[in-house]
């Protein structure tokens, strides 16, 4: 399974995790994670805080290292090999809870930095692509502003444009709306729905169940470092099988 050559193979499953375990010191955060994601699949991961959801997706672009098991991204296994990690990171975009925009660069420069420095693209071409994606997230007029001048929702949309500008095959979203004021959540979710409709492979950690029902192909419920249940949204919300899933859903839907 999976090429050992380190070359991207877009016929392979987008992501494949086999028996992945991770520990923080003595603490067992990820327990025997097995997950396969097909290209263009949209997965929403939910679960109580501390259940390992963020750690799981952060393992995929190796912001965290796993200690047992295997992770393949488009057929390439994640190892200590720095070159391979870079190949994979170019194909995987990520959006963070706290945006993590670079405060010393304008919105446009945030989007073009990796294009010019990683893809070695001429500035004019990079600017064109950057503007395209700022238009897609509906804030082209903010291109020359600095992150400190933007609202939270605008910052998160720039962050999405920044990740998309690299034309990744896979997008990871780590609680993209949980640091936002309620009135700004919708503008970010709208952009994410657009993206889902374009056929992007997406892994989204979120508590926005409305969004999940609308776009997810599959729901993944995690608790205590394990994947407890995986199911299409209709089944997951209407007819959860596991007791813990039921409890979680009742807590999150009934307030």
């Amino acid at each position: 399974m999976g090429s050992e050559t380190g070359a991207i193979n877009d016929k392979a499953p987008a992501i494949k995790m086999v028996g992945v375990h991770k520990w923080f010191g003595q603490f067992h955060v990820l327990k025997d994670i097995n997950l396969e994601v097909e290209p263009a699949e949209r997965i929403v991961i939910c679960g109580p805080s501390g259940s390992g959801k963020s750690t799981l997706i952060r393992c995929i672009n190796r912001l965290e290292t796993h200690q047992q098991g295997q992770i393949f991204v488009e057929g390439v296994e994640l190892t200590e090999d720095v070159k391979r990690i870079h190949t994979i990171r170019r194909e995987v975009g990520m959006v963070f809870q706290h945006f993590n925009l670079f405060p010393h660069l304008t919105a446009l420069e945030n989007c073009t930095l990796a294009l010019t420095r990683v893809r070695k693209m001429p500035k004019a071409e990079a600017d064109k692509i950057g503007m395209e994606y700022l238009e897609m997230v509906r804030i082209p007029e903010q291109a020359q502003k600095y992150p400190g001048q933007l609202s939270g929702g605008q910052q998160q949309r720039v962050a999405i444009a920044r990740a998309l500008a690299m034309k990744p095959h896979i997008m990871l979203f780590d609680e993209p709306t949980s640091a936002l004021d309620p009135e700004m959540i919708a503008e970010v979710l709208d952009v994410m729905v657009d993206l889902a409709e374009s056929g992007m492979t997406m892994l989204v950690v979120t508590h926005e169940m409305g969004f999940a029902k609308q776009v997810a192909n599959r729901m993944v419920f995690m608790d205590g470092g394990e994947i407890i249940e995986q199911a299409p949204p209709s089944e997951f919300f209407e007819n959860p099988k596991n007791e813990r899933t039921k409890l979680f859903l009742s807590q999150i839907l009934n307030h």
Partner: peptide, 23 residues
């Protein structure tokens, strides 16, 4: 990955980290 014990969902125990990760 052959003789790894499997658990029903939600019953996986906390295991100690592999020996080459601690100590």
């Amino acid at each position: 990955m052959s003789d790894v014990q499997t658990y029903a969902p939600g019953t996986h125990p906390d295991l100690p980290p592999p020996p080459n990760e601690v100590g």
